[in-house]
Simulated assay, not measured.
Amino acid sequence: MTNIDIAKSYIKAVQTGDQATLGDLLSPQIIWHQPGDNRFSGVKTGIAEFGAMMGGMMEVAGGTFAITRANRYAANGDMVAIEIEFAGQREGAKMDQAGIDLLRIANGKIVEVWLFSSDPEQEDAFWGK
Rank of each mutant, 00 (worst) to 15 (best):
F65E: 12
W127Q: 06
S41L: 07
N71V: 10
R104Q: 09
W32M: 11
Q15P: 08
Q97C: 14
P120T: 14
G17N: 01
V14N: 05
E112G: 03
R69Q: 12
G56A: 13
V14Y: 04
G128K: 08
A106H: 04
F116V: 08
E83Y: 08
K129I: 04
M79W: 02
D5P: 05
Q19A: 14
D101Y: 01
S117P: 01
G108V: 00
Q15G: 05
L22H: 11
V60E: 15
G108F: 05
A81H: 02
G56V: 11
D101G: 03
G92Q: 11
I84R: 00
K44T: 09
R69W: 09
A81E: 01
T21Q: 11
A106L: 04
A125V: 08
G17E: 12
P120F: 02
Y10V: 02
Y10T: 07
F40Q: 06
E49G: 12
S118P: 09
D18T: 11
A87I: 04
G51M: 09
H33E: 01
L25F: 04
L115P: 01
I82H: 14
G92N: 10
A70H: 13
Q19T: 09
Q97I: 07
K129R: 15
T16F: 09
A20G: 06
A70T: 06
I6S: 15
M79C: 03
G36T: 07
R104G: 00
P28Y: 02
A75N: 01
S117T: 15
W32E: 09
M57N: 03
A87E: 15
Q19M: 08
P35I: 12
E83V: 12
G92K: 15
F126N: 02
T2L: 00
D24G: 05
A98C: 04
T16C: 05
Q89P: 04
K109E: 13
S41A: 14
A48E: 13
M58T: 04
E83N: 07
T16G: 11
V111W: 00
K94P: 05
A81W: 02
A125S: 10
M1N: 12
F50R: 15
I105A: 05
G51I: 07
V43H: 06
L102G: 00
T21D: 01
I84W: 04
W114V: 03
A81F: 00
Y73T: 11
A52Y: 06
E112P: 06
T21H: 01
